[in-house]
Structure formats: C-alpha cells, structure tokens
Write a protein that binds this DNA or RNA. Structure first.
Lengths: 167, 167
DNA sequence: GCTTCGATGTCCGAAAACGGCGAGATTTAA
DNA sequence: TTAAATCTCGCCGTTTTCGGACATCGAAGC
C-alpha cells in the first residue's frame, strides 16, 4: 500500500500530512522535533487527505472545535494510551502532565507523559498542546513554545505573556 | 501480498518453505538456530513452491547439483555479499571462512563471515554447509553439525569421522 | 606445538542517560 | 509574616550506549 504526502498552508506555517490516502499517520510542521524524516518512496499529492485538510482549515478559521478523522499514529503501548487520553481534553481546556498521568492509571509517570506527548505524531488534531505544567507554564512543545502559545490563545485561553526570560 | 508456508519431508527431517508463492524467503529445518519464528498471518499451503520442492527432492535423490530458483533472503548488505558468494562454491567442493572473507573483499572478516553464514535464511539451496574451518573441521551449522556432516557426505566429500571429542 | 590476541559484523541484554514533571523544602523579595 | 521564586530529589518510559558472544584466522610468543 503506497504512502501519500500532502502539504498545506496554515497560520503555523506549512503542514505536512502523511498517510495511506484515507488514514492519517502524521502531521508535522517545520522544524518540529522528533518528526519522521521524509521517505523517497512517498507519493506527493497535495489533493490527498481532503477531509483532514478541510477540518484543519475550519479549525484555524475558528469554525471547528473537534476533529472527526481516521488516525493511525505509530507508537508504543504507553504512548498510545497517552495519545488516546489527549482526545478527552476539550477545546479551550487544559490539563497538566500529572493529571493526565493519573487519568491513564500511571500516577507517577508525569515525566514519561511529557516524553510521550513530545512524540505525538499528529499534533493539533491530537491536542497535545492542551497539556501544560502544574504551575500553569507552557513547559514545552515539539513544534516550539510559540506555536503552543498560539494554539492555546486561538482556543480562547489566557496565556502567560512571555516565557522567554531576559538574563 | 500474502505469505505462504509449505512443509515437505526430507532426509534431514521436515523442511519449512516460506515465501510469497513464487519467490522463496527462507527454508528452515527443525531446531534450527536463528530461524524466523512462525507468523499467524501466514497461509499454509503444502502445494506451493512446486519448483523448489521438486529441485530439493532431486538434490536429495542425488540427481541434481545446482538449484535454479527465485530467492529473496532478507539481511544486511554484508550478509547479502556473503550469501551471494556462497552460490559460487560448486557441489562437492568446500571453502574455508577466511578464503570466503578474502573473496568478498573483507580479508579480516572471517569471523563475521561465520556469523553471516549462521544467519543464512535459505540453507541447502544457498550452500552454507560448504564452508568449513581452515583446519578442515566442520566448526558449526545452524541446523546442527550432524546435518552439515550428512550434506557434505551426500556431496561425496570425506568428512572427519567424529567431531565430538571424548575428554 | 600450544596459547594468546586482535580484527570483524551483528545481535542482545543490561545499564545509563535523557527528557514538554511535580511535590516539598529552602531561600528571596515585599 | 507571606507568598512567590528556586532548588533538590524521586519518578518513569524510551533511547542510546556499551560490553559480550559468536559457525574464524593468522601472527607472535613461549
């Protein structure tokens, strides 16, 4: 079964969608850490993943709060549990790493949850940006803190003004 | 593309043939080290691989000295080089590990050749049994030394009577 | 003769390091 | 005196690293 790639513009910069044509494997933004490297065997087709592209456009336009797509992220059992739990955090809400760890039954795995979050292959759609530190700080994001700040602000949340400290 | 499995009897015990129906991936005997474990998704079909089964029968009957089959062994670049070189050793002849290492351009990799030999997925047809120690001893065989002895004897070679040393 | 040693490619297990953390103690700033 | 910053330490899954073990052979030392 061939693998397709589509690129689309967004307020966060170009997004790369990868999948088998219907099921989505990954969404990556530029300079994202741990992103799967491109493969020469992939078939470029910007008109693929029509549903995904449309729903993302609606999300960025403020006209959509939940996604309804077939996803197939690749990861370990623990990572799958974490990513599945992310879908339960509603638009405009946040949870901290420890809460999510308790919710999936590994109460002391807060740090491991952070790791798994960083490996989320389908950001935005699987809303890893809604997980923040227990003290309200944004802590980290695979695509860069600024994008996380943008997404949370876009969902109507108050965000700490400037994380980057001078000196 | 589905994967098929066929079992056939032989003087060395039952053989398991695995492939996609035409191309052969592996041949394994009972209690063989490093053999690929069975997969529930494989389709059992003892009438598959007709050409391979016939040529093996002829070989065991003493009526065939070379094989002509489509093979697709799975391995690293180095292993592929070793396995390809095995095909150049004629029926009834032997070569030692160091000679083969020199022949493939890695003169000091005799030991690595031994390892790669042990990982040969298609024994008998890819004649790893024709490689022996520089001192003429049989050294080792994935399917057991006794089978290696049987094969070499079957090819008309004088074989050291008893490898197992008492005390 | 016999033993020791180094080179070689691959796999496997163990151990260590590495993070998108958090709770509690300690120190700082009003 | 209080609350907010900072430090320290334990936690946990994953990745990386490292050390052996092997289907060997030749050279060097004794």
């Amino acid at each position: 079964m061939p693998t397709y790639v589509a690129y689309m513009p967004s307020p966060l910069g170009p997004l790369r969608l990868v999948g088998d044509g219907t099921v989505l494997f990954s969404v990556t933004m530029t300079e994202q850490r741990h992103a799967a490297t491109g493969n020469a065997g992939w078939h470029r087709d910007d008109s693929a993943f029509e549903a995904a592209r449309q729903q993302l456009d609606e999300y960025f336009a403020g006209q959509r709060q939940t996604f309804d797509l077939a996803l197939a992220p690749n990861g370990t059992a623990f990572q799958q549990r974490v990513w599945a739990a992310l879908a339960d955090i509603p638009f405009g809400h946040t949870e901290n790493y420890g809460e999510l760890a308790r919710r999936i039954g590994s109460p002391r795995a807060a740090r491991a949850v952070g790791l798994a979050n960083g490996r989320n292959p389908i950001p935005i759609i699987v809303p890893c940006h809604r997980v923040i530190g227990a003290d309200g700080s944004l802590t980290g994001y695979g695509g860069g803190i600024e994008r996380k700040r943008w997404l949370l602000q876009h969902e109507g949340l108050p965000v700490p003004a400037s994380q980057t400290r001078l000196i």
